[in-house]
């Protein structure tokens, strides 16, 4: 019996390691290619390790594009989007979950329908709005449409709905208004949901491509994702430098993920089980 379960465990590990290898190979290949010369990279059959690690590929990638600016723009815009969504979505979610008011269902359904619409549909009109208020080529332009989220409202509403009715009844008896109940009673309890939303928003903001590409033309207002796409654009044909650029763009998020992995995993899990 014990033997059998041990054998089973080994089998499971083999499967899992196999899967993990498949997941990791592209990353490893990215790192290895980034340390080769172009000639080494196109050798047939491919060599795994370069003769010497070419760290200068990173220097080259970082000198072609203003990565410092990219980091700054990406971090700032993502942070603002996250805060905005947490605040605005939770407020709306509270109202939709805990207060009765006229046209509630209708408004909620209309907002929810935004989820069904492919994002590209909004591009041109959003661009025109941003340009009309004179915000093109600013970090604010990167943030603005992302401050509001139907998904976030939906997610947090589900979260708020699970709390027992008794929670606010006590508070109402104490004469608290809704904002106080929301802020003092509900928000502290909703922290896991808020973190879940935060992580969702951070990932979306970090990876967003089309919007920053369209709205910000100048290099020093671009995000990592858009900057990387333009590195791949016209004429840059040096694969090792491309890979070096890609690694320069992805490591911060991977680091944050590894540092806060439990929060990430819990947060993502919450979006699935509460949603």
């Amino acid at each position: 019996m014990k033997n059998k379960s041990n054998r089973q465990k080994v089998f499971i590990h083999i499967l899992l390691i196999g899967g993990a290898v498949l997941t990791l190979v592209p990353f490893l290949w990215m790192v290895l290619t980034s340390l080769k010369t172009m000639t080494e990279a196109v050798q047939v059959p491919p060599i795994i390790f370069p003769e010497r690690f070419r760290w200068e590929n990173y220097e080259k990638a970082l000198s072609i594009l203003p990565f410092g600016k990219f980091y700054y723009n990406t971090i700032v815009s993502t942070a603002w989007r996250t805060i905005g969504q947490i605040l605005f979505c939770s407020m709306a979610a509270y109202a939709f979950a805990r207060i009765e008011f006229p046209a509630k269902e209708t408004i909620f359904l209309i907002l929810l329908s935004v989820l069904m619409v492919p994002g590209q549909i909004f591009l041109i009109p959003q661009y025109l709005i941003i340009s009309k208020i004179g915000l093109l080529n600013t970090v604010t332009a990167l943030v603005l449409p992302g401050l509001f989220s139907a998904f976030g409202t939906f997610l947090l509403r589900q979260f708020f709905m699970t709390f027992p009715k008794s929670l606010e009844e006590a508070a109402i008896l104490d004469g608290c208004n809704h904002f106080r109940i929301y802020w003092n009673v509900m928000m502290p309890l909703a922290v896991p949901g808020l973190v879940a939303l935060a992580i969702f928003t951070i990932l979306a903001g970090w990876n967003d491509l089309m919007w920053p590409l369209i709205v910000n033309t100048s290099m020093d207002k671009m995000t990592l994702s858009a900057g990387l796409a333009s590195l791949q654009g016209q004429h840059l044909t040096d694969y090792p430098v491309l890979m070096a650029g890609a690694i320069a763009a992805i490591w911060p998020m991977i680091l944050i993920f590894i540092l806060f992995q439990r929060s990430f995993v819990e947060g993502i899990a919450i979006t699935g089980t509460k949603g």
Binding site: Y72, I75, V76, A79, W80, T82, I83, I86, V191, P192, L194, V195, A198, I202, F260, R262, S263, E266, G267
Partner: peptide
Amino acid sequence: KRNLLVFLVICVSIALIA
């Protein structure tokens, strides 16, 4: 939960400072 809070605080401070 503490971890989560730390995470949020960092987020907010980045946004504010920046």
